[in-house]
């Protein structure tokens, strides 16, 4: 966003400030929902599993990504950057992190099974 002092006008300024407070409210509401779910931990969300993970944990992770989106797009001004900058930052991070997390969690789960099903007792 090309901000030049000479182009300043009040309506543009107000809309930017309004956007900031809207995003703050969104982030706060999402955080409150997370905290409430974290304190009460509803049983049906704890007992339902989706792709081997609790539904509650899926909700937490999705809400986190939702918050991350707003922080990056609104607070870090990603929505006003060029497509090239946005893609080179966001795609790089998303693909590398998804790959890393997948590979490490798969391996951790495998090692857990080796410990659990092996003939060696690890609790002595």
């Amino acid at each position: 966003m090309a901000h030049d002092a000479s182009h300043t006008n009040e309506s543009k300024s107000n809309s930017a400030v309004k956007r900031i407070w809207t995003v703050f409210i969104i982030l706060s509401v999402v955080t409150i929902v997370e905290v409430v779910l974290g304190i009460f931990r509803p049983e049906f969300l704890e007992d339902t599993y989706l792709a081997r993970m609790k539904l509650l944990n899926w909700i937490f992770i999705i809400l986190t990504v939702y918050k991350a989106y707003y922080i990056t797009w609104a607070f870090m001004h990603m929505e006003h950057e060029t497509k090239g900058l946005r893609r080179s930052v966001v795609w790089t991070a998303v693909f590398l992190i998804a790959y890393l997390v997948f590979i490490l969690l798969t391996e951790g789960d495998y090692i857990h099974d080796v410990y659990a099903n092996g003939f060696q007792n690890w609790d002595f």
Partner: peptide, 13 residues
């Protein structure tokens, strides 16, 4: 994210 993924690794283990 590498730190957090390592945390996830150890936690799954």
């Amino acid at each position: 994210s590498a730190f957090l993924a390592a945390y996830g690794f150890s936690r799954f283990k």
